[in-house]
Simulated assay, not measured.
Amino acid sequence: MRAFLFPGQGSQAVGMGDALAGASRAARDVLEEVDEALGQNLSRLMREGPEDELKLTENAQPAIMANSMAVFAALTKEGSVDLAKAANFVAGHSLGEYSALCAAGAFDLSTTAKLLKLRGQAMQQAVPVGQGAMAALLGADLELARRIADAAAQGEVCTVANDNDPSQVVISGHKGAIDRAIEIAKEMGAKRAIALPVSAPFHCPLMQPAADAMQDALSYVVVGDLAVPVFANVTAQAENDPDTIRNLLVEQVTGMVRWRESVLNMGETGVVEFVELGGKVLGPMVKRILPDAKVTSVVSIEDIEALAKEIA
């Protein structure tokens, strides 16, 4: 069994998708459609930068999705790969869940781009710059990360945002609490604690205003039938009911990304091969969770051709 995976924020880089767009008409079409949907030359920002502007949450989120979907379009339209035959499940990390849902047919490309633009703006506006922060705890599992977060909170928000793999957990909350967590993490048993260069504290209760904005936006959107189920961040389970998926996308804004559990559960379901489309971030996490799994990262036209040949 095989799962297609889609990366989340932090995987953006100036130049992303440029070589692929030059080699694939289907990839170019995706970038042009996203530009048109947003009324913004996002593809130029992806191609040329500046990096500071690309890194802004409201740009990074649709850009990462556009890059993943450009790879997916080249694979399915030019490589003649049928998602329903090639994969048993899709999954994405945080915003990558929207890419996964777009690939599976829950949303069309224009709708996905608009939802992610709004999601990025709402997350950015939920907490004034400088009041929130995030940190990666390395050499810490979920239980240790929770103990560190609880000890550092002291009346402020400090909670686990991403349970990425057995050795990397990300915490999120008020800046003061995250600073305290970084100070005490090593003495409590973590190898290292690193402040992350993010503009807002994602996946924690401080994001409630953004969750409210997404609930409103998603209430107007039709969620289509999925070609294959999605392993949802919030439940770490396979989901394919449209109303459930809509509700989970709202919960996801403030909820923990249960990535480690999702990968473990996919493995238990019988998935032995994981293909990351548009990045090289999730593959190493998967290998730390399921060392025996086959992991492939697909970014370039050469990667796409090799995968299409293998699946055919």
Rank of each mutant, 00 (worst) to 15 (best):
E302I: 08
Q12L: 05
A149R: 02
L42Y: 07
I194A: 09
E268L: 12
V169M: 07
G96H: 03
A193T: 11
L31H: 15
L115Q: 01
V295N: 04
E53M: 15
T76M: 08
G22E: 14
R147K: 15
L101N: 07
G79M: 12
A135V: 06
K85V: 07
G96L: 02
K287L: 15
A193H: 12
V170S: 10
P166S: 02
K114C: 05
A87E: 03
F107Q: 12
A136C: 06
L116K: 04
S80I: 00
N233R: 11
D241E: 14
F231I: 15
P50G: 01
L307C: 00
E268D: 15
M46G: 03
N67W: 07
L142N: 09
E48K: 13
W259E: 00
A21H: 01
Q40H: 15
E143H: 07
C158G: 00
S199C: 01
E36G: 13
L290F: 01
L116E: 10
F274T: 02
P209E: 06
T254M: 10
E33P: 00
A87K: 01
Q215T: 09
N162M: 07
T111V: 14
P62Y: 02
E268M: 11
L264N: 15
V228I: 06
Q12P: 03
A306T: 14
A308W: 08
G270W: 10
G155T: 01
K309H: 14
D163V: 07
I311E: 02
K280C: 10
G224R: 04
L83I: 04
G15R: 13
N240Q: 14
R2T: 11
V250K: 00
D243K: 12
A13I: 11
E58V: 09
K280Y: 05
A60Q: 04
A211E: 09
Y98I: 14
K186F: 06
D52Y: 02
A151E: 11
Q124R: 10
E51T: 03
E305D: 14
V170H: 09
E305R: 14
G224L: 02
A308L: 12
N59Q: 10
V14R: 02
Q252G: 05
H93M: 07
A238L: 01
A26M: 12
K191V: 12
L264H: 13
P128N: 01
